[in-house]
Amino acid sequence: MSLRGIFKRLMGERLAFISLIFLILLGITAIVAPYVAPHDPLEQNLSKVLLNPSAEHWLGTDELGRDIFSRLIMGLTAAFQAGLFAILIPLCIGVPMGILSGYLGGIIDDIFMRIVDGIIAIPAILLALGITGALGISLWNAMIAIGIIFTPQMARLARGQTLQIRTEPYVEASKISGAGAIWIMVKHIIPNIAPPIIVQASFYLSYAILVETSLSFLGMGAQSPQISWGNMIQQAYSMINMNPWMIIYPGLAIMLTVLAGNFLGDGLRVALDPKYKKA
C-alpha cells in the first residue's frame, strides 16, 4: 500500500484524523512552549495567589501565584518527551531483538524470549519505579525507564511477525537466490512487519504519558522546578481544600492527550490493516 493510500484511509477515520492534527499541534506547542506561554511558568507572585480564571490568567494562579495555563503548556514538553522515548527505545532495541530472535531462532531466540517473558511479568509501573530507583531519581532516568518497560512487548510483537513473514515464498525465493540474512531482514522482513509495529508504537505515546505523569506524581520523575502534569497534580493535591480546579486542569490535559493518542492508534490500525474489522 502506498503512503498516500494509507493517508487517505486515515483521513477516512475522522476521529483518528482529528486526533492526529490535535497531537501535531500539541507536539509543536511542546517544542516552542517557552516562547508561547503567556507568562513565565516559574515566576512567583505572592500578591496574586490562588486567583480565579481571568483575562490575564486564563486558568487562574496556583498557591505561589504562578500562571496555571503557562505551566500546563510547559508540562507538554515532559509528556511528549516521554512519548518520544517510549517510541524510540522500543523501536531501536526491541524491534531488532525481535527480528533477530524470530529470524535466527535457536539459542538466541530462547535467550531473548526468556528475558522478555521475565520482564513482561513485572508490572510496567513497578519496573519503571525499580529502574528509576536504581538509576537515581530524575526526569531523564524516568524517561529511560519508560523506554525500557515497553521494549520487551515490542520485541515479542516483532518476533511473532517475523516468524510469519519468514516462511513467505518471496523470502524463501530470496534465500535460494543467495541473499544474506541481513539483506533479507532489511529488504523483506522490516517493510513487511512495519504496519503492526507502527500501530503498537502509536499506542506507546498514550501509555508513556500515563506512566510519566504517574512517576512525576510520585516524585520519581520531574523534580521542581521542572514541570510535568504529574507533579502539578501532586502539588495541587495539597491545595485540594482551597482550589480543586488546580487538580482538575492538568488531569484533563492528560486525559485529552491520551484519548487522542488512543484514537490515533485505533485509526492507524484500520488504515494500515485492510483486513481489520472494527468492533
Binding site: 498514550s206 505523569t213 493535591y237 486525559m255 491520551v258
Partner: peptide, 16 residues
C-alpha cells in the same frame, strides 16, 4: 474514557 483516565487523578476527583 476508562483507558485514558490517569488513575491517581480519578482518585482525587472521587475524593473531591
Amino acid at each position: 474514557l476508562g483507558t485514558a483516565i490517569p488513575n491517581f487523578w480519578l482518585g482525587m476527583i472521587l475524593i473531591i
